[in-house]
Amino acid sequence: MNRNDKKLPPLYYAIVLHFLDGRADDASGVVEALRGDYGGYRLLNAGGVEEALATAKENGLLEEAGYRLDEGGGLRIDYEMTEFGRDMVQRCLL
């Protein structure tokens, strides 16, 4: 389905909702997961998603779960949802 076939939440909400299942992920994983529905959005790229993840972290919704280097030597930061984040998502976004 594309964004014309169903009502999608705003991209920032979708990024945060991606972590509701409790699994950790990094920006590239989020981009891949959301590409099907949000592929045409300009901000669905590693830089845009990294900024959204950092903002969610600063707001207490996500926390860093670990980090690693990718094949090219780039830093990958994994995030996971906090208890506060889960509570806020359930109260405000669902």
Rank of each mutant, 00 (worst) to 15 (best):
D25K: 02
E64W: 04
D26A: 07
E63M: 12
M88L: 14
L43Y: 10
F19K: 01
R91P: 01
G36Q: 05
T55V: 15
N4V: 09
D5N: 10
G85R: 01
E58P: 00
Y13C: 12
D21W: 06
D78I: 02
G73A: 12
H18R: 10
L20A: 08
Y79F: 15
G36D: 04
V49Y: 00
L20P: 01
G48N: 05
G47L: 12
Y79P: 02
F84S: 09
M1F: 08
G29S: 09
R35V: 02
A52V: 00
G74N: 15
G29R: 02
D5Q: 14
F84Q: 12
A65M: 04
R42L: 13
G60E: 11
V49M: 07
D26K: 05
G39P: 05
P10L: 14
Y38C: 03
L11C: 10
G22A: 02
G22I: 01
P10H: 14
D78F: 08
A56R: 00
P9C: 07
D5F: 11
N59A: 15
F19H: 02
Y41S: 09
L75S: 11
Y67F: 11
G22W: 01
L17W: 01
D70S: 14
F84P: 05
Q90F: 10
V30L: 09
R3Q: 10
R42M: 11
N2Y: 03
V89S: 05
E80A: 13
D87H: 09
L17P: 00
R86F: 10
E51Q: 09
R3S: 14
E63R: 08
A56K: 00
E80M: 06
R86P: 02
L34N: 00
L93S: 03
A24N: 05
R35S: 15
I77Y: 08
R42I: 14
L62G: 02
G22R: 03
E51W: 06
I15T: 00
T55D: 11
D87C: 06
L53F: 09
R35G: 04
D5W: 09
L44N: 03
L69G: 04
Y41F: 14
G48S: 05
G48E: 03
L61F: 06
I15N: 01
Y67A: 15
